[in-house]
Design a protein around this nucleic acid. Structure first.
Lengths: 184, 184
DNA sequence: TGTCCATGCGAATTCAATTTGGTGGAATTT
DNA sequence: AAATTCCACCAAATTGAATTCGCATGGACA
């Protein structure tokens, strides 16, 4: 049925969690954390990237360091909801560098725009011009953000299919180093 | 005056931009991009981390892979705005794994809560129980998210103080490899 | 003009990433 | 049930990067 759903096991989820917390973990460290050999761990990470489960790796930077003095949410209600118009306005907003997040939602607002600007003047200009500059707009309401928190890691609601490889007897029966083929 | 503001130069901002796009860039690659020797580049990155400008490195994972089927914005209006109550409710929300973003804003809403849940039942339970379970709450409105976009990199409004090291004559007068101290 | 400081470089060392060939267990086939 | 296939894993080896270090350069300041 679902060709795109090999389902992630416990170790995969562990890898995702660790990399969400710290994307700079070296493969060796990650392998040690999840209890795998570096080579096996690397193979899993590469697979997760190939499958699009790991969609990117981003540094988090202090907004103040790039001159963002204030942030705001702008709630926009459209006067018309033609898909054509919505899409055009959506694309328009995405081109604004000030737009950090863009939500298209059901309910009494249509769009919620999270913006980061230099100062109040910048905010006023942004809302007055590029954001309001569109046909078929209804109400616009701007709310200053006092505080914002973003969780770094997503919850995990996925059922784990298998013990992924239950190390049944104790912890690690270290395999006897076998090497005979290339040996005098 | 400002002991914590050595101001970032052009190269620093370039580093920030690149790492926001791809936090897994190797130091060597990054150095090549920004036009620095690996050792110099590493020193800058380490400094940016020490100074808190680089606040973290996070993997971005596909919500579907962890079982998040739907996302929503929950708009909450408080009945009372006592700082004590606000803070308690804020902390309460932060403990919910479903909460992905939390905004405390001025305006007609007080809190905007971005949640990721398994399905509609999960959403109903979340809003009915943990989110509504607090005194002094006013209106609550839940809006399904149809589409969400997050920009990976912040804009840069910071003025660049100095050419960081203007290579005035041409590009790279390759320094004559000096090594005399340890030479016959 | 001389000194200090910040920043950069290259070479050397240390350590990690990646490749490869082989192993064992579990599931599947005979 | 025995044989076979397949898959994920591991260890070792190689390649290549991260990190350290001593020194050089150029601007700021006196």
């Amino acid at each position: 049925m679902d060709s795109t759903k090999p389902a992630l096991d416990r170790i995969d989820h562990r890898i995702l969690a660790e990399l969400q917390n710290n994307a700079r973990l070296s493969n060796k460290e990650l392998a040690a954390i999840v209890g795998l050999a570096p080579s096996s761990c690397l193979a899993r990470v590469q697979k997760l990237v190939r499958d699009g489960v790991l969609a990117g790796f981003h540094a988090e930077v202090d907004p103040a360091a790039v001159g963002i003095g204030i942030q705001a949410l702008v709630f926009v209600r459209m006067a018309r909801h033609q898909p054509r118009d919505m899409q055009a306005y959506w694309d328009h907003l995405l081109e604004l560098p000030e737009v950090l997040d863009l939500y298209y939602v059901a309910g009494s607002h249509d769009l919620v725009v999270h913006v980061g600007v230099r100062d109040v003047d910048h905010l006023r200009e942004l809302v007055a011009e590029p954001i309001s500059d569109f046909e078929h707009l209804g109400q616009i309401e701007t709310s200053l953000i006092f505080q914002h928190h973003r969780s770094a890691v997503l919850p995990n609601y996925a059922p784990e299919p298998e013990p992924a490889k239950a190390t049944r007897s104790g912890s690690k029966p270290p395999r006897k180093t076998r090497r005979k083929a290339t040996e005098p």
